[in-house]
Computed example of a mutant assay.
Amino acid sequence: MIAFVLYFLTFSFTLFFRRWVNDQQLLNKLENDNLQTELTRLKEQIQPDFLSKMLNEAQLLAKKDADKASALIFKLGSLLRYQLYESVHEKVFLSDEIHFVTDYLELEKMYNERLEYKIQVENEVRYIQIPPLLFMPLIEYAVRESADNEDGAENQIAIGFQAKEEGLLFTCTYHCSDMNTLQHMPQASLPAFGQLQKRLDLLYPGHYLLENQYDHQSSCTTNLKLM
Rank of each mutant, 00 (worst) to 15 (best):
D178W: 04
V125L: 04
F50W: 04
M136F: 08
A153N: 14
Y111T: 14
A153D: 14
S70E: 11
L60T: 11
Q83C: 12
V125Q: 06
P131N: 04
E86F: 09
L107R: 10
R81C: 07
Q156T: 07
A62C: 06
D49S: 13
A58L: 12
K64G: 02
A153Y: 08
R81E: 06
P48R: 03
L169R: 04
K75M: 12
D96T: 12
I73T: 15
K53C: 06
I119P: 01
L115D: 05
D103S: 11
K75S: 10
C172L: 00
A158R: 12
P132C: 11
E86M: 11
L80N: 11
T171A: 02
D103Q: 15
T173A: 03
E90S: 15
D67R: 14
E150C: 10
Y111F: 11
C176D: 12
A71F: 15
S177I: 06
P137D: 01
L72V: 03
I98R: 07
H89S: 15
E106T: 15
Y117N: 00
Y127L: 11
T173E: 04
S146D: 02
L72N: 00
V88C: 09
G167Q: 07
Y85F: 15
D148N: 09
K64E: 09
E86Y: 14
T173S: 01
K164R: 14
E140D: 09
R144T: 13
I119V: 05
V88H: 11
E154D: 12
L60I: 13
H99R: 15
Y127W: 05
D178T: 08
L60D: 13
I159D: 08
V101M: 14
K68I: 10
N149A: 00
F170A: 00
I119R: 07
Y82S: 08
Y141M: 09
E108T: 03
E106P: 09
I119G: 00
L55F: 12
D148L: 14
N56I: 03
